[in-house]
Every structure is written in structure tokens, then in C-alpha cells.
Simulated scan of single mutants.
Amino acid sequence: MSLRHPLSTLRHYGYLLHYALVRANYQRRLIATTKRVGQTKFRSYELFNRHGKDVLLQALLLNLDDGDVVVDVGANTGTYTLAAAADAPSVEVVAVEPNPNVASQLQANVEANPFDDRVRILTCGLGDADETREFHLSNYDELGSFSSAHASAWEAQVVDTAQVSMRSLDSLVDSDAVPPPDHLKIDVEGYGVNVLRGAESVLRDYRPTVYFERHDARGRYDESAAKNLLREAGYELVPVREGWVCEPAATTTTSHSV
């Protein structure tokens, strides 16, 4: 067994302590502090403003209009969901989070704010088929994934597995379980291309703006295929720090693409 570099070991135990403190805060609902994304404010039980400075999130808020529908795939504890709901008074958000433990934290954050009637949480995964799949729970809560390789990234370890319901976005929209989105954010730890394959009709018929967070290729999952899928669907990809802002070609105003 290879030994970790001392800095990696320090980082590993720092993450473990962080997640332990966060879990305790959620379990006891001790302190929900105000977080800010630009001029937008909301409350959450996170200890830090995680993802609050994401360029993808700033792009989402910039593009939001009253009455828009946001589907937040891989919502985690809800930074994108909470910021979108707080940014415009009539925005509707469907937050999709397959990790049951993290979904309960997301629910706590929604309840800490005055817009729970505009946020709906789906505790399932999104992929390319309606089925049940094995979900890998990580000791770094944020890294839980349908890919065991991604759930064990950054010195993390898979601590358990759970059988989780998987849906495709196409089937959810077709059945009226989810309204057609104007904005589709995808951050699913290596499973993003599967989400897109299950949303081909939505991309073709409703043309949402897509905010896609890239992850390193690990195991059987390589999200470089997502770039080709989006281009074939008629999207222009604008690179940002975390991934791509993907706009339907007919409405794209920028000449820069990946």
C-alpha cells in the first residue's frame, strides 16, 4: 500500500473534520447563516459559502428571468438551488439529489428560507434510463456518485452503497412530473454525459441553457463525450472555470466556443 504525501494526509483529515462538523450542524440545525452570491442572499447550514463564487452560478443568475424553471441536477446541499430561488421571486427550481443523506441537508436549507413552495426536491438520480442503480456514498459527502472512481477521488473513500432510483429528464418532462426547464445545471461527479443522453428530447424541444460542471475522467466515465453530444444538439459551449455554459446556437451572442 502506498503512503500518502504528508500534505495529502493533512488535507484528507481536514476534509473529514469539515464534513463531520457540517453533519453535526445539519443534524442539530444549530446555525443557518446568510450566504451571498453577488447581491443575492439566502440562508444555509453550510459552514462556508461553498460554490458561492462559481462562474457557472454567476452565469445562471445573470440569465434568470422571472417565471423561469431551473432543474438543478446534482443539487448537493443547494447552493445553486437556493441562489436561483432567492434571485427572482417567481423562479421555480427542481433540485435533484440522489444521496439520501445530502438530500435531507438540502431540505433543511430550503426550510431555512421563505421560498420552499417554489423549490421541489427529487431524491433520485438522473441518467439515460428509468431504472435502479448502485450509488456510492463517500466519506466526502459532496463526492457521492454512481461512479465509484469519482466517489473515491481526492483521497476520499467509498463507505457504503445504496440502491437509488434513476430517471431520465425526458421521461420526467414527458410525464409532467417536471416542467420543461429554461435552465439545466449538471454537476454529477462524472455521470454528466449520461444525464445529457437522457435529456436529448428536452434539449431539442425546449432549448434550455445548460451549465455543465466538468470532472476528471475516472474509471469508465469520461465527460469529454458530453462536448460532442451538446454540439450535435446545436449548442455553443463557452468555457468557464468550472466547466461550460452551453447556449442554443440560435441565441448565442458570443463568438468564443470550446
Rank of each mutant, 00 (worst) to 15 (best):
F135W: 06
T132R: 04
N113Y: 13
A149S: 09
P114L: 10
D170G: 07
S168C: 03
D72N: 02
T79Q: 12
F135L: 10
A156R: 07
P100E: 09
N109S: 11
E92G: 01
V55R: 10
L169A: 06
V73C: 08
A149P: 00
L64D: 04
A129W: 06
A129I: 04
F135G: 07
A88Y: 01
S104D: 06
L137H: 11
D128G: 00
T77W: 00
M166S: 07
I121Y: 00
D68K: 09
L82E: 06
L62I: 09
G127K: 03
Q105A: 13
S152D: 04
V110Q: 00
A149Q: 02
A75V: 08
A84Q: 14
Q163L: 14
N101E: 14
S90H: 15
N99S: 15
M166Q: 14
L57M: 11
S148Q: 15
A162V: 11
V73R: 05
V71Y: 10
V70P: 04
A112R: 12
V119T: 03
V69M: 11
V55P: 01
M166H: 04
D87L: 03
R120S: 09
A83N: 04
V164T: 09
V164Y: 02
S90K: 15
D141C: 07
Q58T: 06
F115S: 06
A95S: 15
V94P: 04
T79D: 10
N109H: 06
V91S: 09
D160E: 12
M166F: 02
S147K: 09
A153D: 08
S147M: 13
N139C: 01
L122V: 10
G67M: 06
S148N: 09
R133C: 04
E142N: 13
A151N: 07
L56A: 04
I121N: 01
L143G: 00
P114W: 00
D54A: 12
Q105P: 00
V164E: 04
S145C: 13
P89E: 10
N99K: 05
A108Y: 06
V119A: 08
V70R: 14
Q163W: 07
L137S: 13
V71P: 06
Q58R: 13
V96R: 03
E155M: 05
A84H: 13
L56Q: 02
V94T: 14
D68Y: 10
P114Q: 12
S145E: 11
A156L: 12
D87E: 08
N99H: 13
A86W: 03
V73W: 08
D72W: 08
A83P: 05
S152Y: 01
R120A: 11
L64Q: 02
V164I: 15
A162R: 14
L137D: 11
D72C: 03
Q58P: 01
S90I: 10
P100K: 04
D65H: 12
L62Q: 15
L64S: 02
E134N: 14
